[in-house]
Simulated scan of single mutants.
Amino acid sequence: MKYTPQNPTPSDALKRKSVEPVICYPVDSLPAYDASVFAQARESMQLIDEVIVQPRDASMFDVPKGHFFRIVCPEGSQVGDLNLWNAHDLNERFYSGKTRALHGTHVSTGDHLWSNLPYFRPLATVTWDTLDWYGWDDFGGGVHDVIGTRCDPYTNRLLSGGDYHYCCHSNLTRALAAEMDMSLEQAEPYVHDVLNVFMCTGFTHDTKQYFMKASPVRSGDYLEMFAHIDLKGGLSACPGGDCGSKHSSEEAQCAPLKVEIYKPADGTLSRWKSSELSPYSRTHGL
């Protein structure tokens, strides 16, 4: 808490605070991640497309079901904000909140990116992470978070009084509108909370405020994912660069990002089972 308590400490305060925590969503019943399912496919997959995302801008890309995609840092240290949609229905999109509840504040190899209710299924699975060595630092920071929302012009106006139109929210809205031939007003509601790729974040030990620090990403690093359904993605190269100082400004040094799409060789994913809609949504639709 950030404020001075207004009430006296009760006599049993220590007892109340020492109660053991309980994991809200035990994931033992989820199928364990089996890297061997994807190993052969990763060895023989072929690059079929790539998209360059310019600094302080966003680009769209498509990933067919059963393909891999990589978000690559090709030049200087740079973080990105990722949105994912069902390529055939934008109403189904990445659900960062439930992904966080199931897998934790930061994702890495073996974690799923889940879709929103009532669809609720894995959209993608992380299959390789060159920054998995980072783990947790002394500040409580980790890489690839699903706790931050996305930088946006609304919050920027609230906190600074100024307008900045290259926030990740704005970038993703413009990119989606152009891709889908929508107006900005039509596209904006589909832009959602993100996976902050390469971003190094956490909560301060004292006030539990969301913090960012310079990303450990370097040229050649990448986060690789496998698409369980046909995906449409949007990626913004954050105006904060490596997010070591501030975002939503022209002050940070920014670099491009790259998305690579890979097709596995035929027959290399024989053990993979496609992602289906939540059984609840099929049998107890509201």
Rank of each mutant, 00 (worst) to 15 (best):
W114F: 09
V126G: 11
G80L: 06
W85T: 03
L123H: 09
E75Q: 13
G148Q: 12
F120L: 15
A101C: 04
H106Q: 12
N116E: 01
I147H: 15
V126M: 11
D145L: 12
S96G: 08
W136T: 14
V107Q: 12
D129E: 08
S77T: 05
Y95A: 11
E75V: 01
G104N: 01
T155F: 11
V107H: 03
T99K: 01
R121K: 15
H112K: 04
G97Y: 13
L113C: 04
T127K: 05
S96A: 15
P153Y: 01
L131V: 01
T105K: 10
G80I: 04
N116T: 03
F94I: 06
S115V: 06
G140W: 08
G141P: 06
P122H: 05
R150C: 03
L102W: 06
T155H: 13
W128V: 00
A124G: 07
L123G: 10
D81A: 13
G76Q: 03
H144Q: 09
W128T: 04
V143N: 10
R93F: 07
N116R: 01
S96Y: 06
C151P: 09
Y95M: 04
R150H: 12
W136Y: 13
V107F: 02
L90N: 01
K98M: 14
D152I: 06
C151A: 10
D129Q: 09
Y154P: 01
